[in-house]
Write a protein that binds this DNA or RNA. Structure first.
Lengths: 143, 143
DNA sequence: ATAGCAATTTAGCCTTGACTAACTTTAAAA
DNA sequence: TTTTAAAGTTAGTCAAGGCTAAATTGCTAT
């Protein structure tokens, strides 16, 4: 007995990977609400064409994704009009922006080149637990 | 002029996201070759049933994935038999194992709980650039 | 007022990665 | 040796997230 316990972590990875798949499913949503928030802040509104350009995907892909986000309650949109964040979307965007900033600042603080840090933060931010994020934040703030 | 240059990184994220999508496409492959390597090391051979259990997916899903890995030259397998890594697969597994270890050690070294570090490392390892990995490794080795 | 262009939407296709259900093969126990 | 349970395979479904091509809408300049 006990060979599948926490004492022998080699043998119960399933949970880790399940969480990984969940994080995965949230990534695109998070990147979109974050970007939509940025666009509204920078340009006053978020249009499909700007999202397509910034993500490097086609307008059709943006359209699909926005439909999903709308279905899931993160944005509202009317045909041929700009895209808006719901409260839920805004809250998520805020959280993501903060998280992104913490990861970015942390990477730079340990000596990663700012441009590389920008790349890596984008990938890492979706996979950092609350605890690790706290450690990052504490580390940046100089212990 | 210059508003899309590196001086204004807000405006050319497309590349970042393209790389993110690529990293994404490699994740499952990397997790599988790594796990197959582990199983061979621990149990002498890698069977579908063990992969399914460890990843928390069905045997059918494992089967699909293994076919893809075989098509892409990372593993060999014969019906109803164990799965083997090709040289290419072995090389990738080795690289992933090292990277995973560096990320894990780094997280633990900055004060993340080992169990949480294990979770996070699994997600982060696929998104860490060579440069950031070097910074992590250097940091762990006590600069 | 309308012509034309840019933006958006729609339709149809693809791959990945997941599932269930049903079937086949292998290997071990009776 | 035969039965049976476990392992593996196959077929069919689904959602996410990409794409292209074609249709539609909205805006702007004539």
């Amino acid at each position: 007995m006990g060979e599948d316990s926490a004492l022998n972590p080699r043998h119960n990875k399933a949970e880790v990977f399940a969480r990984l798949r969940d994080a995965h499913a949230r990534e695109v949503t998070e990147d979109y609400v974050e970007m939509i928030g940025d666009l509204i802040a920078e340009e006053g509104e978020a249009r499909s064409v700007a999202l397509a350009e910034r993500f490097g995907v086609t307008a059709a892909t943006v359209n699909n994704t926005i439909k999903r986000l709308e279905r899931d309650g993160f944005v509202t949109s009317r045909p041929y009009r700009a895209i808006f964040l719901t409260e839920k979307g805004e809250a998520l965007a805020k959280k993501c922006r903060e998280r992104h900033q913490i990861v970015y600042n942390f990477l730079v603080s340990i000596g990663v080149d700012p441009e590389v840090a920008e790349f890596d933060a984008e990938g890492i931010e979706h996979h950092v637990s609350e605890e690790t994020l706290r450690v990052f934040a504490r580390s940046v703030s100089g212990l």
